[in-house]
Design a binder for these strands. Structure first.
Lengths: 140, 140
DNA sequence: TATTGTTATACTCTATAACTATA
DNA sequence: TATAGTTATAGAGTATAACAATA
């Protein structure tokens, strides 16, 4: 990405934030349809790639480690994840998706692929403005 | 915006979501530095444009009207906003920023303009991929 | 001593339902 | 009757501090 003025980037981020707001709302709605909160669904998304420790999960999700206990407790109670003591370090607990957990997050992602409403929700004027800003930040 | 395959849009949204995630984190950090939560700062951002009723605020922020009571209570207690009974309809309360409220949200937005780290945090490979996807969604 | 996960605590956000003042 | 705002209630997310088990 070539150097661009902060003002242009700020405008771009603001416009994208507007669009992404709708995207996040869609994600929350899709999660709610599965009886999950955004945090729970986000956690499943992270675990979809590979099992992870409580501490590392907290880091990835950007929250304090103490929060993960409650979030994982609720997911485990519903059978979507399971805790496994690490053989290498018995202080560590690796959290992994169960078959049910995989199905739950895949269903949400499938719903998201069907909506992809983020950019479509921008008005014509906003789309034009977005294209203009993008051509400035990513010139060709 | 011309028609584009859902798969391309989904990829684009995912990449932008990654970037915007950092943007939101920056916003939350800037708000926290001012002793405000994200919800409180977002509320001030909305009010920065013009005063608004409790109900309308809830609609804009995408939450239930009952939530606004507590959020506005806390902002009012800190002298950042004030409630005013609407002369036209005495059921309605218009919420407006105080001078302190204006300064608070302007400080946060100023900090954000200084960071604009959203796009910059993408790796080289991600930026290249982003440019490619954008040229597909916004052909020139 | 340092680190991992948990617990205890407190605050905020959030939705639902019931209530009041007004229209 | 309908609407705007509030209150009561409950669940979830969040951070801080203190703790036990393990390294």
């Amino acid at each position: 990405m070539p150097p661009t003025s902060p003002a242009v980037k700020a405008q771009l981020m603001e416009l994208l934030a507007h669009s992404l707001g709708a995207h996040y709302a869609d994600f929350a709605t899709a999660a709610a349809a599965a009886g999950l909160t955004s945090s729970q669904a986000k956690t499943l998304t992270v675990l979809r790639r590979s099992p992870d420790s409580m501490r590392s999960l907290a880091g990835t999700l950007g929250c304090d480690a103490s929060n993960m206990t409650g979030v994982i407790d609720r997911l485990e109670k519903r059978g979507l994840v399971r805790r496994e003591v690490s053989p290498a370090d018995r202080r560590v607990k690796n959290v992994a998706l169960t078959e049910e957990g995989i199905q739950a997050i895949d269903a949400i992602r499938s719903t998201m692929n069907g909506t992809h409403a983020g950019l479509d929700r921008l008005s014509e004027a906003e789309q034009t403005e977005l294209a203009r800003l993008l051509s400035t930040v990513f010139p060709r």
